[in-house]
Design a protein around this nucleic acid. Structure first.
Lengths: 321, 321
DNA sequence: GTGAAAGCGCTAACAA
DNA sequence: TTGTTAGCGCTTTCAC
């Protein structure tokens, strides 16, 4: 393995000069540059990134916190984040952190010690006291102090869902999902948007929510179907839950969308082939993934960054009229 | 940030001694050890892993090659791999490599230069000439020379599927899936097992296969339904495809499983809530993920390792009689 | 058992 | 514009 020393020697220049051309920094004459480049080529020299990371205190690696990669929406998002990071020359370490605050803390500590360059976090753990806005951290769907975040237009999505239900003739609508006592997340705005729109439109609505995490989603759904027989339109917090609701309702011979309209949130591709095709509010996953990376890199460069909220879109499927 | 120097000074010992107790290597008297440990504690010293990686040429990081994390089976597998790696003190870099050989090569080069400790690969790229069995690499479902691999019992699974179809009264069965001209993968054994079992049982079978990757899965499935109306039982290469087949068949009012039995392969959890519940051959994902890590670490320790084939299980759903 | 010292490959400051 | 040098924090000889 050739080192920078070998390159310098072969090119007949000093160590510093070699380093300068390799990093394209500082003044180097065209002529010298050429000599060095030749040497690099001849030797097949590749910089030792570990050594570099050691001296620059930056290893070009970002940690992605995810409750669990084993969840369709997160894995789609992770896909685009990795793709964009790779394009920008960063590696991505995955950290499945669901309910494991310590695991996240480990990486936050690594960040403090410059052992990861930055963090992109989809985190439902209580980490607000461990991080602050001067660190290169970007969050998804969550507000912690001044830390920049990216989210879809949850509020608008909530309104949109109600609008659709109303326009397709639903009279008794409900919001189904979760809430959290401990952390604030953008997701709650789906409810808020739904609620506000219902009020504006003078429509009666029901909130069917349980504290996150729901222990038994199936039971949660069955209970709903048992107790809210008059409801003819539901906006469900996410596609996975919406999809299970569709299944359970069909088991009960409730015809969808005639008797019950269902709208999800996320627009997960993985489920796109299923019948009935779910009507849903689609988050622009790819866009979100790439802006997360953009924001983080700006942060890394010391630029000022502000939260980004991306527009959503209603995807008509077969679960609404 | 306290360094090992600070620790040594505070403990009143030499640098080397401090290092020895930190790494629990070499001879250190109990007494000295205690002093050093105290100093570490008082200073809140944490070893600088980057520096360590630099000198030891090992950064305790393994790269996971995945065609795409955005695929249910892979993301489940990735989940367990990450979990196990974390337990063993390794970080996991994710590399979505579908069709991007260069991306894999990048990490293979990093491996050669000791910038990643090892590689776990689910790769469909032609990388056989770039790697060899002396490298710390473990593959999933693929044989490349002597490189160790982990897979489920694809052959047994294929036999099992046929057995089930036969026992539930199917007379005209088919295998549906893909093949590759360029790479050999364990997946083909699903077909082989199915075929062998059909022959043993004296059952007529049809192979409905197309070269991987299938451009348009939906068309592929429609064509099947158009042309093979006499078939009453299909074993499909993976759950995703099986699931879409179920949907399309139902659209055509083909009753499942009465007119057509369908068995998938994988046992993906993400789809577990869907109706009709898919009958499938379940791979022990968790076990596979964890053994991949085990094998890799053994390899890293210079131990001899051999391929591991894990048993599969038939999961009866509602798409078989 | 222990301390001193070399050196991993690189960047950056400094002097020339 | 260039070469020299210090030093990043750690592990690992090698004497003692």
């Amino acid at each position: 393995m050739a080192t920078i020393k070998d390159v310098a020697k072969l090119a007949g220049v000093g160590l510093g000069t070699a380093s300068r051309v390799i990093n394209d920094s500082g003044y180097v004459s065209e002529e010298t540059k050429k000599k060095v480049l030749e040497a690099i080529n001849k030797l097949g020299y590749v910089p030792n990134e570990t050594a570099r990371a050691f001296v620059t205190q930056d290893n070009k690696t970002v940690a992605l916190f995810l409750p669990s990669i084993h969840h369709a929406f997160f894995s789609e998002l992770a896909y685009y984040i990795e793709d964009e990071l790779d394009k920008k020359g960063y590696k991505m370490i995955l950290c499945n952190s669901s309910g494991q605050k310590e695991k996240e803390l480990k990486y936050i500590n690594m960040l403090k010690q410059n052992k990861v360059s930055g963090i992109i976090g989809i985190s439902y753990n209580p980490i607000e006291n461990e991080i602050n806005h001067s660190m290169p951290i970007v969050l998804v769907d969550r507000h912690i102090g001044e830390i920049p975040y990216v989210s879809s237009d949850n509020y608008g999505g909530g309104k949109m869902a109600l609008q659709v239900l109303k326009e397709t003739g639903c009279n008794h609508v409900a919001y189904m999902g979760t809430y959290s006592k401990t952390i604030f997340t953008e997701v709650e705005k789906r409810l808020k948007g739904f609620e506000d729109a219902a009020k504006e439109n003078g429509i009666n609505y029901t909130l069917y929510i349980e504290e996150d995490p729901i222990k038994d989603q199936t039971t949660f759904l069955h209970t709903f179907l048992n107790n809210y027989k008059n409801i003819d339109g539901v906006f469900v917090e996410n596609d996975m839950m919406a999809l299970e609701l569709v299944q359970l309702a069909q088991d009960r011979k409730i015809s969808i969308p005639e008797e019950l309209s269902i709208i999800g949130y996320d627009g997960i591709q993985t489920y796109a082939m299923l019948r009935p095709k779910l009507s849903t509010i689609r988050q622009p996953v790819e866009l979100m993934g790439r802006s997360l990376v953009d924001l983080l890199i700006k942060k890394l460069n010391g630029e000022q960054v502000t939260p980004e909220i991306h527009p959503v879109q209603f995807l008509k499927g077969e679960t609404t009229r």
